[in-house]
């Protein structure tokens, strides 16, 4: 594969045989939402560190909360907010908060305003494209959107977001909390290029590569949360 994007998430590139093909869409199913959050932020942060813009669509926490948590692991997203880091906050307004204005954050009025999310994403991605041919996107989480909307509506939204992101050279992760929507997994998996899965065992967190466009060297890795991010091995 020619154009592999190194994720720079420790241990992941090796397992994937170099990295992600440009414009990969990924479904990340999980039993451990917190660790998944770490993984996703690490994915975005490693990109930022190599001048790839990043966008986080967040439904369960405010960008402000996420940023504070990340600082504890040595990741200061704020310093990228001038240009490279963008947030779509689908949490704060529905939760009845009234946070300060921040040009790096677009706040969407409700979980049902999927159209507004696409508008914000388009604006951000247009600017991303001027900065770098590739960028990274995380949507955490698909489950929350499905609870409020019906699954068909969310899948149409996903189809549009994936298409737009790929066109603009972005790679994107959709987080799905397992359990509630197990029955949707096969259909969702069909809509993406790759499927990763995170499960909690007695030995720790296992990161599984269930679907990937090319041959991978290992299908199961252990995920450790370190002081500076996550590590797969």
């Amino acid at each position: 594969m020619a154009d592999l994007l190194e994720t720079r998430v420790k241990g992941l590139d090796k397992a994937l045989g170099g990295g992600l093909p440009g414009g990969t869409s990924i479904l990340l199913t999980t039993e451990t939402p917190e660790k998944t959050g770490f993984f996703c932020l690490d994915f975005l942060y490693r990109g930022l560190a190599s001048k790839q813009p990043a966008m986080m669509i967040t439904t369960d926490k405010s960008p402000e909360e996420i940023k504070i948590d990340a600082v504890k692991r040595g990741q200061t997203f704020v310093r990228f907010e001038e240009k490279f880091m963008r947030w779509i906050d689908v949490y704060s307004i529905p939760a009845g908060r009234s946070p300060d204005e921040n040009p790096a954050i677009n706040r969407v009025s409700s979980y049902l305003s999927l159209y507004d999310i696409t508008i914000s994403a388009s604006i951000f991605q247009s600017n991303f494209y001027k900065l770098n041919q590739c960028h990274r996107v995380v949507l955490d989480s698909l489950s929350t959107l499905i609870v409020r909307n019906n699954s068909q509506t969310v899948m149409r939204f996903m189809q549009v977001l994936t298409e737009k992101t790929k066109k603009a050279g972005g790679s994107l992760i959709y987080v799905l909390k397992k359990g509630l929507y197990a029955h949707l997994e096969p259909e969702l998996e069909k809509m993406v290029d790759a499927h990763f899965d995170m499960v909690q065992t007695d030995k720790g967190t296992v990161f599984k590569i269930l679907k990937f466009p090319s041959e991978v060297s290992r299908k199961e890795l252990n995920l450790k949360v370190t002081r500076t991010g996550v590590e797969l091995g």
């Binding site: 307004i93 009025s109 409700s110 049902l112 305003s113 999927l114 159209y115 507004d116």
Partner: peptide, 12 residues
Amino acid sequence: TQTKRADLVVED
């Protein structure tokens, strides 16, 4: 309005 609160439309 079907997808957001009316007062948020006014604000917007």
